[in-house]
Design a protein around this nucleic acid. Structure first.
Length: 955
RNA sequence: GGCCGGAUGGCGAAAUUGGCAGACGCACGGGACUUAAAAUCCCGUGGAGGGAAACCUCCGUGCGGGUUCGAUUCCCGCUCCGGCCACCA
């Protein structure tokens, strides 16, 4: 019985494609271009995972399909190759990261080529290649040279930044510093997670509960000079432009959520100069004077020393603000702390400083805080409100200070209960709110929804939304507040204390003593790339400084025009290289520009981008940000890089039995475990098999002749799939699958499992099933009798019967539509139906076989090429025209339609295609069974959808 | 807690605009071929009931309501599962 032999056929065609450069993309596309991009992988030491080929197969099918439909296709692949694992491996073994990386890339390349993807391998790139990261550094220089013009909402060259007169007057150095403060790439002190025991800086994800993920060593937070990118400047555009993109609403929602735009108001609470000095309570005269100054002077850029500025989304609850909270890092904390509270406040702030953000959120349940001893004035009630310090207020959001409204904010309520602070309800919940209204009005419960204003002076009776508008305007008129917008999005911390990343093209000026002056200069673009130096050792050096501090002096120091400079020793994060790789693919060897403008204009944007949902936020947001900067500066022609985005679902491990109950409701017992095959027990009960319930041997013990399940019989029969993980031992290796079933089977199976975007479990039996389909196609077309490969004698040069023609054209139509909709699982089902039908035909017209080979070729290209050759063609089928279906061939003369009585199916009748509603109804009434059932009934109504169904409604 | 997604046979799933629920595949059962097994081919396979049989009846798309001649599909209210974010004022 001949079976398709992938071990021979697949390498043969892979070699053919490589030799003929079958899938080389044209430099410039024709008038119908298609740029199809996969999220390029990080080449880890574990090799390819079965999750990778899922998205890659989907894009490959689209590319092969569209090439056959005459489109110019760009389909490249590369490596996101910087990353910490190679550096950690270097620390352990001394193997340089570049060596490890190249080895891993070689493995990934081999595995991807083994799967027969139609990449243009001449465009392969790696982010770690100096000729690549030269342009990553170049883009950093663009960011460094750009400021964001709020009025025009776009990035502009730093040379166009207006300099205030007082800055100009202060001299050239002051001007440079002013410019530095406005660049999209700027420096700032930011805390890092320093682990002294490991001698390294850790990412937030590597710190769990204040201890390192590896080894559980203490981690401390240290401020360090870091590079930041001003992504917040682009927050509005990043949010608004989502509307133009063909992305799923869920991914858009994820990005919107991350950007986290909210509108509300900023409000100033008077504290007075005296209070600010921690000396005495403010006087009524101070308040009056401050108010008078504000009502004529307007709302200043900053609150000044005499007021605490807060941000709130609920200005309508201002009358219920009974206390205030400052974040422990708030600059006013020290000044507002009275001597008698100083010890407590200082202790609290020190404790908070040691906690990471994660720790703070872990303790979300228990609110802690400490009173400063000072008071501020509620701007509308004029009552003094106590000022507290608590770590449930974050320094990094809003103004780092809040007005607390315990009646209408859950966190404030918890805090107020804990510290017995007054709770004043100011929103009357509507009847429909589903809360205990009396409790809310008594200050015994919290209500966070909208309602009607109470206890709010002149605003009483206003609904929440009107109240917000009115009070914001009133505060603005008095110079005590203004409308404000806030974002959860923070500026992007862009530097890492790692070796294996892109060096920054920045030099820091040194003074005569060798200290940083704070001034810097860029490495000019023509001197890029700044390559990584050779490092002697990768051992930890016991300081939070970056590894590049250990670089040889000739790399580290430079003298230019008589001044000494030290290189920046931080490196860029892994996101940097992946932010713009889609541009480089278009022109990968260009030594004069990151991408030729004509090529960029011709190929961009990416038409289809497929990858995992784990990059739904960060990578896609960062890429869009960089692209917008490049767009503002005129280097790319569009504002968005990825027009259509599809997220493939996760592939889980095989289903595992977690408990069992027999089909008839009884319990399986050891005696009823009937047979076993490799690695599994097959459960039987009451003579009936428990449908496909397989128990891995590890869950059962053999005692004598019987098997005893370790699982307990009172547990229901349940099976469940889990994420693939090394620790669970359920990771499927693509090499094994290809060796056993072939690349075409792996590709086909991953597409047949279910919808691309769904999460779905792996099943080796399923792989075997689609392999069976490939064998059936093979047998349908090739000879079963001869040793030599030849056409099956049933395949003959004959006309198709009308029925065969109908099956053929229905298949063409269905497969074409399904691939267009990316519904690959159903397209495969339709080809299976075709094969099931034609295998039963004693004569299989050659034309039909040839068409099927073309239809299956995007999914199973190796076998298709082999069959195509057998059918007498010399060249690859990669550019054969895609089959077109003939509507006339599909049309049937008669249609069978269901006849219902009161919505229940009672009969089927056959009517001519295009029969009128009357004719259809007559045909239905003429049916013997329907006539019988309708006899003596009163038909109230007849619903006829011609060609679809008939429904008689009786009384 | 917030946002998003999902729930259909023993399992993965299909049903494109509200119109014959379960295509296709797996698993399982029966049969053919075979000394035997594998492979292959044929038949059956949502549940319950009735019938010698052809067939027939009822129930059935997580739960409870609603709209409709008709709901897996639309609306309202829940339950459970998964993902992401999470003291964002």
């Amino acid at each position: 019985m001949p079976r398709y032999n992938p071990a021979v056929i697949e390498p043969k065609w892979q070699a053919y494609w490589a030799e003929h450069k079958t899938f080389a993309a044209p430099r410039l596309p024709g008038d119908r271009k298609l740029y199809v991009l996969d999220m390029f992988p990080y080449p880890s030491g574990d090799g390819l995972h079965v999750g990778h080929p899922e998205g890659y197969t989907a894009t490959d099918i689209i590319c092969r399909f569209e090439r056959m439909r005459g489109r110019s296709v760009m389909h490249p692949m590369g490596w996101d190759a910087f990353g910490l694992p190679a550096e950690q491996h270097a620390k352990k073994t001394g193997t340089p990261p570049r060596v490890t990386t190249e080895k891993n890339i070689a493995t990934f390349r081999r595995q991807l080529q083994m799967l027969g993807f139609s990449y243009d391998w001449d465009r392969e790139l790696a982010t770690t290649d100096p000729e690549y990261f030269r342009w990553t550094q170049w883009i950093f220089l663009v960011l460094f040279d750009t400021w964001f013009d709020d009025a025009e909402q776009r990035g502009r060259p730093i040379a166009e930044l207006p300099i205030p007169a007082d800055v100009t007057a202060a001299g050239a150095e002051r001007v440079r510093r002013y410019q530095d403060e406005h660049r999209l790439a700027y420096q700032s002190e930011a805390p890092v997670n320093w682990c002294p025991a490991l001698g390294t800086v850790l990412s937030n994800e590597e710190v769990i509960g204040g201890l390192s993920e590896r080894g559980s060593h203490p981690v401390v937070r240290l401020p360090l000079r870091q590079w930041m990118l001003r992504i917040t400047a682009y927050a509005d555009r990043l949010e608004n432009d989502l509307d133009k993109l063909d992305w799923s609403e869920s991914i858009k929602a994820l990005q919107r959520n991350w950007i986290g735009r909210s509108t509300g108001a900023e409000v100033d609470f008077f504290i007075g100069q005296a209070a600010a000095d921690g000396q005495a309570k403010m006087s009524g005269a101070d308040v009056k004077a401050w108010r008078a100054a504000r009502s004529t002077g307007g709302f200043p850029r900053s609150a000044g020393d005499a007021a605490i500025r807060v941000y709130t989304t609920r200005p309508d609850t201002l009358y219920g603000a009974t206390y205030m909270v400052l974040a422990p890092e708030h600059p006013f904390v020290t000044r507002l702390t009275r001597p008698e509270q100083a010890a407590a406040v200082q202790a609290y702030c020190e404790r908070a400083a040691r906690k990471s953000d994660l720790d703070r959120t872990d303790l979300a349940k228990e609110k802690t805080g400490v009173f400063t001893g000072s008071f501020a004035v509620n701007p509308v009630t004029s009552r003094p409100v106590p000022v507290w310090v608590a770590d449930y207020v974050l320094a990094s959001y809003g103004t780092g200070a809040i007005m607390a409204v315990p009646a209408h904010d859950t966190r404030d309520y918890e805090f107020a209960v804990e510290y017995s602070l007054p709770i004043v309800p100011v929103v009357d919940p509507p009847e429909t709110a589903g809360v205990d209204r009396d409790a809310v009005l008594a200050g015994k419960a919290v209500f966070t929804g909208e309602g009607t204003a109470i206890n709010s002076g002149p605003y009483n009776g206003l609904p929440t939304d009107q109240f917000k508008e009115k009070i914001t305007a009133d505060l603005a008129a008095r110079g005590q507040g203004r409308k404000a917008v806030n974002y959860k999005l923070r500026d992007w911390l862009f530097s890492r204390q790692h070796f294996w990343g892109e060096p920054f093209p920045i030099l820091h000026e040194l003074d005569a003593q060798g200290n940083l002056t704070g001034l810097m200069r860029v490495v000019p673009p023509e001197q890029l790339p700044v390559d990584l130096p050779e490092l002697e050792k990768f051992q930890s050096h016991g300081s939070p400084e970056p590894p590049l501090e250990q670089a040889p002096p000739e790399w580290l120091f430079q003298t230019i025009d008589g001044r000494r400079y030290k290189r920046e020793t931080n490196t860029m994060p892994q996101w940097a290289g992946s932010c713009w790789y889609y541009l480089r693919f278009l022109d990968p060897r260009n030594a004069g520009a990151l991408v030729d403008r004509e090529l960029e204009k011709a190929w961009m944007p990416v038409d289809i981008y497929i990858g995992g949902a784990e990059h739904a936020v960060l990578h896609l947001l960062y890429s869009r940000f960089w692209h917008k900067v490049l767009f503002d500066r005129g280097y790319v022609s569009g504002a968005e890089p990825f027009q259509k985005l599809v997220n493939q679902g996760m592939i889980l491990g095989e289903m595992e039995l977690t408990g069992y109950q027999t089909a008839d409701g009884g319990w399986a017992s050891a005696a009823e475990i009937d047979s076993s095959d490799e690695g599994n027990l097959l459960l039987k009960a009451s003579g009936q098999p428990v449908k496909s319930a397989r128990v891995p041997f590890e869950q059962a013990e053999k005692t004598g002749e019987a098997f005893v399940l370790k699982a307990r019989p009172e547990v229901r029969l349940e099976s469940r799939a889990h994420k693939m993980s090394k620790s669970r031992g359920n990771v499927v290796n693509p090499d094994t699958v290809v060796r056993e079933y072939g690349a075409d089977a792996l590709r086909l199976y991953e597409m047949f499992m279910g919808p691309l975007e769904a999460t779905k479990p792996w099943s080796m039996d399923g792989v075997n099933g689609v392999r069976g389909f490939l064998d059936r196609v093979w047998r349908m077309i090739t000879s079963e009798r001869s040793e030599q490969l030849e056409l099956n004698p049933a395949v003959r040069e004959v006309e198709l019967s009308a029925e065969q023609n109908r099956v053929l054209h229905k298949t063409i139509q269905g497969v074409t539509q399904d691939i267009e909709r990316m519904s690959f699982n159903t397209s495969i089902a339709k080809m299976m139906e075709f094969t099931n039908y034609f295998l039963k035909c004693d004569v299989r017209p050659r034309a039909a076989m040839q068409t099927l080979v073309l239809l299956v070729s995007p999914l199973a290209p190796h076998m298709a090429e082999e069959l195509w050759q057998l059918l007498g063609h010399e060249k690859t089928l990669a550019y054969e025209p895609w089959p077109v279906f003939d509507p006339a061939a599909i049309r049937e003369d008669n249609v069978e339609i269901p006849v219902q009585i009161k919505g229940k199916l009672r009969a089927r009748v056959t009517v001519p295609l295009g029969a009128s509603a009357e004719a259809t109804e007559q045909a239905a009434r003429a049916d013997a069974r329907i006539a019988e059932l309708l006899a003596g009934q009163t038909v109230v109504k007849v619903v006829v959808v011609p060609g679809r169904m008939v429904n008689f409604v009786t009384k």
